[in-house]
Amino acid sequence: MGTPTQDFHAFFEQHHAELSRLAHLLLGSSDGPDSADDLAADALVAIWHRWDRVSAANHPLAYARGVVANLARSRIRSRTRERRRVALFWSRYGEHTDGPDVPAVLDVRAALDRLPYRKRACVVLRHAFDLSERETALALGISVGTVKSQTSRGIAELERLLTQAPAPAPQGERGAPESLRVLRTGPVERSS
């Protein structure tokens, strides 16, 4: 064990990519490619400021995941409030349209974007990061029972959304659609 700075640097090097990927999956694709890295960086800055407490905790990575999840939730809420303000403005002063174009085929990312935050967080942590129910509960600060119910409901909703596509998604491990494996194995898409 080295100095606190060395310990934090090692933690950063070991977990930054995972925390960035978690942020990307929780935020969805509408925030842009760099927002997940920014959120992960913000989380790591917050962790650095509390490093003495975090490093002494039984599960520092679970704490870090919780910070990412909380920051993502705040950002999503902020984004939702902003969209409501814009929609209210356009409903009063703008032109009405028939609504957004909906693609014929929903992919996993688009389906995840449509899930409520807690369901999305549970599905992502359980299936993309392969965390246990207990680890997921610890990261999100909720009960194991809530993780079970939110994951089950989230998977059911994803299956419903994904079966709206021409070909239904085949079933994989733990009853999740096979296409959820892209969350675990696929690299985070980044644009240059």
Results as ranks from 00 to 15, higher is better:
residue 120 R to M: 01
residue 151 T to W: 09
residue 90 W to A: 14
residue 149 S to Q: 08
residue 184 R to P: 07
residue 73 R to D: 02
residue 84 R to F: 09
residue 76 I to V: 15
residue 67 V to D: 00
residue 176 A to F: 04
residue 143 S to G: 15
residue 133 E to I: 02
residue 48 W to S: 12
residue 124 V to L: 01
residue 185 T to N: 09
residue 157 E to R: 15
residue 73 R to H: 07
residue 33 P to Q: 13
residue 149 S to F: 02
residue 38 D to M: 12
residue 32 G to M: 13
residue 183 L to Q: 13
residue 130 D to F: 07
residue 183 L to H: 07
residue 25 L to I: 10
residue 81 R to D: 11
residue 181 R to N: 12
residue 76 I to G: 03
residue 180 L to W: 06
residue 161 L to Q: 13
residue 125 L to Q: 06
residue 2 G to N: 08
residue 144 V to F: 00
residue 180 L to P: 01
residue 1 M to H: 03
residue 190 R to H: 13
residue 88 L to E: 08
residue 134 R to C: 06
residue 77 R to K: 14
residue 85 R to T: 12
residue 80 T to I: 14
residue 86 V to L: 10
residue 27 L to Q: 06
residue 137 A to V: 07
residue 184 R to T: 11
residue 143 S to E: 15
residue 159 E to G: 08
residue 177 P to N: 10
residue 179 S to W: 11
residue 81 R to T: 02
residue 1 M to W: 00
residue 54 V to N: 00
residue 167 A to M: 08
residue 24 H to P: 09
residue 109 R to C: 01
residue 123 V to T: 11
residue 1 M to F: 10
residue 145 G to D: 11
residue 51 W to Q: 14
residue 81 R to K: 09
residue 178 E to I: 11
residue 81 R to V: 12
residue 177 P to D: 05
residue 1 M to C: 02
residue 145 G to Y: 09
residue 154 G to K: 06
residue 73 R to N: 10
residue 153 R to S: 13
residue 1 M to Q: 03
residue 85 R to S: 10
residue 127 H to D: 13
residue 58 N to T: 03
residue 53 R to Y: 08
residue 133 E to R: 06
residue 118 R to G: 09
